Amino acid sequence: MSCGTLRWDGADDDGNSEERRPPAAQLTRREAEVAQGIAAGLSNRGIGRQLGISERTVKVHVRSIFIKMDVSSRTEAAVRALREGHIAMPPAAPDEA
């Protein structure tokens, strides 16, 4: 049995692999609100309008979320924020009949 260092990719020094993820990110209240907008499918402009902040400020928050969560897409950010409990599942859109 190995006592080697575990890397973020899930493999230890001996090459043994197991599913590991970086620790949960700590989002600010505003970042969580922006993440909620991302999960709802809103654009940066739409998130800004909803929160009463500029699109540029939304971009700053999105970048911070990506860095803290170690993700590279809006989809990854939304999924991870949901899994880690930072946001709630957005309501489903009404069916168009």
Rank of each mutant, 00 (worst) to 15 (best):
E19V: 04
I47P: 12
P23L: 06
R83V: 05
Q26G: 02
E33M: 06
P91S: 09
Q26F: 00
S2K: 02
A40F: 02
G48M: 12
A24N: 08
S73W: 13
D14V: 03
S64H: 12
S72N: 03
I67S: 07
A40C: 04
R29Y: 08
E18I: 04
I47S: 09
R21M: 10
M1G: 15
V79L: 13
T57D: 08
V79Q: 13
A39H: 02
Q50N: 13
S2Y: 01
A97Q: 08
R63W: 06
P91I: 06
V62T: 13
I65H: 01
G46T: 09
H86S: 03
L51E: 07
G46C: 11
T75L: 09
S2P: 09
P91Q: 08
V71I: 10
S73R: 07
I65K: 03
I87T: 05
H86F: 14
A11F: 09
A32V: 00
E76Y: 02
K59A: 15
F66K: 10
E55T: 14
S72R: 02
A25P: 05
G41S: 09
T57E: 13
G15S: 13
S17E: 10
Q50D: 11
E18P: 00
E76N: 09
T5Y: 00
R63N: 08
A81I: 02
A39I: 01
E96R: 10
R74V: 01
D14I: 06
P94W: 14
I38K: 01
H86K: 13
G37W: 01
L82A: 09
K68T: 04
A78P: 02
A78I: 07
A35D: 00
M1H: 05
A92W: 07
Q36N: 03
V58I: 15
L27P: 03
L6E: 03
G15L: 10
S54W: 11
D95M: 11
L51A: 11
F66W: 12
P23V: 06
R74F: 08
R49L: 15
C3T: 13
V71A: 11
A39Y: 03
D9K: 04
R45G: 04
A24P: 15
R29N: 00
R29M: 00
V58P: 03
R30F: 02
G15T: 07
A24V: 04
S73G: 11
